[in-house]
Design a protein around this nucleic acid. Sequence first.
DNA 1: GTAGGGTTAG
Length: 605
Amino acid sequence: MARSPPSFTNLILRRPTPRTLQNPNSQIRNIGASNDGTEFNQQNQDPINSNRYDNQNFIEIAREVSKIIRTRPRWEQTILSDFPTINFGDPHFFREVLMHQKNVFLSLRFFNWVSSQNGVLPDSLLCNEIFTGLVEAKAANAARNFLDSTKFGPEPACLEAYIQCLCGNGLIEEANDVFDQLKRMGKWPSLVTWNSALLGAIRARRTDLVWKLYVDMIECGVIVDVDTIGYLIQAFCIEEKFIKGHELLRQVLEDGHVPSKVSFNRLMSGFCKDRCYNKVSILLHTMIAKNHAPDIYTYQEIIHGLCKRKMRHEGFRIFNDLKDRGYVPDRVMYTTMINGLCKMKWLGDARKLWFEMIQKGIIPSEYTYNALIYGFCKTGQFNEVRKLYKEMCDRGYSKTTVSYNTMISGLCLHGRVEEAHALFKQMDENGITRDSITYNSLVQGFCKEGKIVEGTKYLYELLEQGLQPTTSSCTVLIEKLCQLGHMDEAKTLWKDMQDRGVKPVACNNDSILIGLSEQGYVAEGIEWLATMLKSRLKPQKETFERLVQVLSQGDKLDDALLVLGYMFKIGYALSECVCHSLVNRLCKDNSHHVETCIGDILQNG
DNA sequence: GTAGGGTTAG
């Protein structure tokens, strides 16, 4: 767009008429209608006053306006009456104000105000200036909104900076769109921009985007650097392909490049989780050899990896070792260790670390509170939970799904499902989102206490919310339904679960099998057993025994013997007490093949 | 100019 020559005549030059005084917006209604402004407000132009303001005045007024914007919080309410003759929407005046207005957010506010007055069509140079300012201020959302509302096309160089800004603020999808936009313009971003996009994708854990970007880079013939490779290693780590990540690391090392510590740390954390401790040790040595001193992050990843792999003793040993060697753990390190100790129910040690941390002046974070609250929940110390939870809220950490979930599952674990239920209801009142953990914990809590009506209710509510039930929730509910003889419901749930892609567990079949036999549906039970065996699902030994007992007590000796045959075929032996009761039962019977049967039983039992 | 880490079920 051609830049219009400075023209001050369309700016002010107008004695306020009664109409414009009544409606200040009419002053700037037509601004932007033409490039050079010659047609502006022609009917109101006052040729006598046209030259009253010279260049000097113009600059002074702009300076004054910019000062007012800077210093008066609600300048929008007064500015029109302060400057009744000023044409605020003139791009040149606007630019002049901007020149004195260093704060881009205030400029944006001024811009929005002028636009809201009459729908100004701003020129692209001005837009570019504001947009660049927002991008430099890393205000990604403001920049995006600005772009959306003005629909102007920034320069390619500016778009590159914008990509980096978006990535730095986690707006990965948006950055990806801008990449495509650049591509359409036939421009290719620099390596720095590619790398910032890769980093953004890593932070968002979007490895799909990492690979897409990488393919694009290669296709464009970009020469990648060691940072790029570092991000690829991290992407492998996110996908838990630690071996591949390690392989890539070895390659760059051979080429004489050393990626950042982050790549090493991630790999070590992964190998801890995979129990490949020799690889951890190799990496630690490589790191040191390459002049990357292991830092607090390195050890935190290792300790966290060990805790995740239930090697918490080992983690605690390293933690104490580090302290002895002069490392000063930070808040995250303390949180990680307190969490590990709580998982082991070592509440004494956890509490000791908690106080040690506070004594060193480190304030527990929301994570730290949740970790210790979890520990007290696990060990059933609900008085401590209450105290700590109150302290956490007093500190200004808001109530969250995680903290509620921790307490709900803790209460359920200790059979206090009614209290858990109260918290569950409280979540709604406090506007806290319930997730699948919330529901699944509560369903299991109710089922464990035999309250299947409530358990079923919340399982269905979970489904209504579009959440995924877990195998264990379904399992415990099926088991209870079977025990209480609600066989139709149990079978429906079992089928429903498979339709929804919940991984069924073999023991569901066992529950149904026993339930059917106990309820007297012998034929269906036997059929169910046959289907199981056909699909190579192996019922538990206890299931067979229970089945044999139910059948023999119900005078279904032939069926009992049939089941017994299956049982022996699988290779289970009969335990002594079941054997006794069965033999007793058979001896009362005068069946002709009793002897053969007893022979069989004794042989296999 | 200095990345990267930590919390809840089963």
